[in-house]
């Protein structure tokens, strides 16, 4: 088991290097340069060139990438061009907000997804089946900035003009109220995947013999579903949550902007625009590590739960 984990982590390394290389190449060949963006608009040609020199932008592409990798090996992500702060510390101050938002949105998505998925499965091919799927699909069908703006208008503006106080703060970070709207916006966008997988895995489980046995034993339908069917149907649901994690992290960019949420998604967009290479690289690396580790965790969870799979890794 331990060897398996090590092997998997070792297999991550080329993926991470590949990811940073692709992003580095894209950034490098993006027109414009960080020096011009940092300097005031009336900067002269000579000043721009001096700045490029200081930032090391005159080096050939591969040399720049090489020095990034060399730094990385020593655990150094470099410093932000714009602020001079170490990239690692900037990311660490911003990461908790993004992780919190991701966790909260998964909770929202799971709640919606499980309920809709179970309803759809136990009432397969009825109006309820389609209705539950339809409801779950609404979230993914709306551009989430649109839903976000609508919610702000309703819960902050409309509420405060009509009831004299704001139900939920329009933006910001720090309290439980602050997280509700961003989590709902992001969570609803991912609920449909959980609904789908819950439904199909429930359908499959419900046809198994042991469910028939349980029913035959005279257990109530509710007990059958919760204690027998749902339990066994949950595994694929956990998998899909893991697999959606990367999409969720990437998707939080827009939500973070609308709600002025201090996560790394917003930081990343600003950094891409300012061509702050090191910050972009650092965040992409963070995303890739998180995504890969979550995928690994999901696989491991499988082995913990299912002894048949565990045996394979001995």
């Amino acid at each position: 088991m331990g060897r398996y984990i090590l092997k998997r982590i070792a297999a991550l390394i080329p993926v991470l290097i590949g990811a940073t290389f692709i992003v580095f190449a894209i950034m490098h060949f993006t027109p414009g340069d960080p020096a011009t963006l940092m300097l005031p608009q009336d900067a002269t040609r000579a000043e721009i060139e001096a700045m490029q020199e200081r930032l090391g932008l005159n080096e050939p592409f591969l040399v720049q990438y090489g020095s990034f990798l060399a730094g990385l090996l020593q655990g150094d992500l470099g410093i932000s061009f714009r602020t001079g702060q170490p990239v690692a510390s900037v990311i660490m101050t911003r990461l908790p907000a993004t992780m919190l938002l991701a966790a909260a949105s998964i909770i929202v998505a799971v709640i919606i997804g499980l309920i809709a998925g179970i309803i759809a499965a136990i009432r397969q091919y009825t109006f309820w089946d389609g209705g539950a799927m339809f409801t779950a699909l609404l979230g993914v069908s709306m551009p989430n900035f649109w839903l976000g703006l609508m919610m702000i208008l309703l819960f902050s503006v409309f509420w405060s003009t009509n009831f004299g106080y704001t139900l939920l703060p329009a933006s910001g970070y720090g309290t439980f109220q602050h997280i509700i709207m961003p989590a709902v916006v992001l969570g609803t966008a991912h609920a449909s995947f959980i609904t789908r997988i819950t439904r199909s895995s429930m359908l499959e489980v419900l046809r198994q013999d042991y469910i028939r046995t349980a029913r035959a034993k005279g257990l109530s339908e509710w007990a059958v579903i919760v204690s027998h069917a749902l339990r066994n149907a949950l595994m694929p649901v956990v998998t899909i949550i893991g697999l959606r994690f990367g999409v969720l992290l990437g998707g939080s960019v827009i939500t973070e902007r609308i709600f002025a949420w201090p996560g790394i998604g917003r930081l990343l967009i600003d950094a891409v625009r300012a061509q702050d290479y090191n910050v972009v690289q650092g965040i992409i690396l963070t995303y890739a590590v998180i995504f890969s580790l979550v995928t690994l965790a999901v696989d491991l969870l499988y082995t913990v739960i299912d002894p048949r799979i565990r045996r394979q890794y001995r």
Binding site: V15, G18, A19, T30, V247, L249, V253, Y287, F291
Partner: peptide
């Protein structure tokens, strides 16, 4: 493995970087 590399970068962010680069 190349596909894994692309998948490790969140898709939306990859698109943002690519459109920024291409215009």
């Amino acid at each position: 493995r190349i596909m894994d590399v692309i998948l490790a970068i969140p898709g939306f962010i990859f698109a943002v970087a690519l459109v920024t680069a291409l215009g």
